[in-house]
Design a protein around this nucleic acid. Structure first.
Lengths: 152, 152
DNA sequence: CAAATAACCTAGTAAACTACTCAGGTATTG
DNA sequence: CAATACCTGAGTAGTTTACTAGGTTATTTG
């Protein structure tokens, strides 16, 4: 599991689709405008997201991308894994005979770490993340209103 | 929090020191040979680790690096943070007015995520990781012996 | 004291990755 | 048929990664 900005772009885009899902397919140009990500970069990311079966596409006018399954069934980990090719952080190519004819030092440690983080991100669905954001937005708005009242 | 191979190199090196701590300071050339990491790259990494006060150096023959504090008090997160400059994954420079005059979509989500992972890695000390590895090695050896008996 | 050791420092570099532009396709709708 | 929007590939500036090369400085040992 690799954590970088690239994965964040993908999550942001999937987030955007989840938010506008009810209006039908979401075009990449809409996402590009709303999220400030270049269209071509989005196209690259969505080629992978589609390849992993996370989104499905509809061509032609009014077309765009929609979630391939319910947003409850898409985990943040799936999205990140789809766009970030795994870096082989172990550098052993899957073998256990990687360093001086023995398991390299951090092989197990790093695997455990990766597993743990993937586990955490697998437990969070797009749906959960979206609803969490709504809660945050409401409390932000309330904070803002409160502040407004105080200053008046 | 960024997760990449660079942080893994740093953790591996710190691991090596923790394992050879009792023999006095550990030289970078020893780590280089044992872990298969280039000497100069280690020098770059240790400049940062020293700057963060995680290791202390002794010059001259028989010198090297030793842990600046007890291995129980050094968290994996500290090591990774020392070498991986934070990527500002939010791309907002700390402001909350990052995208179209509102908090960008995944700002909060990504912060939560980062916090959670940092929290996990802060809870694992070098000492814990080392002892975990020892357990793993013993069970590996037992597996190997068992296999040997079976095949004989 | 001299030589060996090892930290410390600076510069450069091939390869990979990031985020992007450009320039075309192809499928679908009105 | 024309507009839309997916799809594909090439190219690219900037950054990061992991490394090589070539020093200097501090310390120990013969």
């Amino acid at each position: 599991m690799k954590l970088s900005t690239k994965g964040r772009y993908a999550v942001t885009a999937m987030f955007d689709i989840a938010l506008h899902h009810h209006e039908g397919p979401v075009s990449l140009s809409d996402i590009s405008e709303r999220q400030g990500i270049s269209l071509s970069y989005l196209e690259q990311l969505f080629a992978r997201l589609r390849g992993q079966g996370l989104v499905k596409s509809t061509r032609g006018p009014g077309g765009g991308y929609s979630l391939a399954m319910d947003s409850e069934r898409i985990a943040i980990a799936d999205v990140i894994d789809a766009v970030d090719e795994n870096v082989d952080a172990t550098r052993c190519g899957g073998t256990t005979d990687c360093q001086n004819h023995r398991r390299c030092l951090t092989h197990g440690l790093w695997e455990d770490l990766s597993d743990q983080i993937r586990g955490y991100l697998s437990g969070i669905s797009l749906a959960q993340a979206v609803s969490e954001m709504h809660v945050r937005q409401v409390s932000d708005r309330q904070d803002h209103q409160l502040h407004h009242v105080e200053t008046v």
